[in-house]
Amino acid sequence: MVTSWLKERPLLNDMLVSLLAVFAAFVVGAGLLVLAGADPLVAYRPLLLGAFSSRYGITETLVKATPLLLVGLGIAVAFRGGILNIGAEGQLIVGTIATTWVVLAFKGLPGPLLLLLALAAGFLGGALWGAVPGVLKAKIGANEILITIMMNQIAALLLGFLIRGPMIDAEEVAYGTGYPQSALIPEGSWLLRLPQTRLHAGLLLALLAAFLVYVFLWRTTLGYQIRVVGTNPQAARYGGISVARNLIIATCISSGLAGLAGMIEVTGVHHRLLDGISAGYGFTAIVVALFGKLHPLGIIPASFLFGALLVGADMMQRTVGIPAGLVNSIQGLVVVFVVSTEIWQRRRA
């Protein structure tokens, strides 16, 4: 009876399978910790409970869920359109660069206008960075996975170059400290925050984006075309849908959302450019998107879950000294298990 009830709710059913995959990943992770000579129980307590043990943990979970949600939505759009965009990390970085640059260049403008400008800059910065693999894939069939990964490296190096060179904070140079970071952006462009926390209005923007992505993919012609191209490019071609055009649009929306996440990290959290500002969100968001079955309704809870995991990882590293690398391993296992169990989910074609 339960199974037939679940069969009518495929998304829920698939997410339960995903949960099993996460559980399996934690079990295997425990085995690996034992191999490395660490006690899994000591490691998992802060990892799993850390996020829920305090007000700080809960708000930080939401702070981390925000970019994960935005980037995860973007990855879902790309994957649905048949593009394996692994370049969100780089697209997010370019989004932070474009945002910071624009906001610093026009800092005289009033706050709301500046924020709108930042929004456009972040989205366009990411979209432009993603357009390179998108166009190369659509026009000549170049492998987008490898190109996006290369462009992640290039973006990280570009960021490093900019905050040590052209964009370094003038005060860092004046005081001779030379810490690699940009100047602070004007306070007018900071996103509203809940007092005494880092939780900012970006979360609402990300939730709005989830709604918009849902409407786009399932309620517009363009969204429909993108999904057809992703599932069956031959049929799309016969139906008169331009595969190349839709591939490019899907990639640009996907990378634009990653760039938007970058904009939110700058205006909501850091208020400047820093090394490591992307914090691996681009990769974790792949796990989030897959776990959420490439559907906004799945990706929202997935982003909270993995946001909590990232907060827990910080706590684990601080309190019991187990490196946060454990979380990367678990995420890798989740990806492997989720795609491996798809063979049992293909009933509805």
């Binding site: 490395a36 394996l84 690398g325 990367n328 492997v336």
Partner: peptide, 27 residues
């Protein structure tokens, strides 16, 4: 298991990256 080879490869990448770093820090 006939898993998508693009995505499962990324999973193996994350796994290897995380584990090698974890093992190195612990040992």
């Amino acid at each position: 298991l006939r898993a998508n080879q693009g995505i499962s490869g990324i999973g193996i990448y994350l796994l290897g990256w995380g584990l090698s770093s974890l093992f190195f820090r612990l040992t």
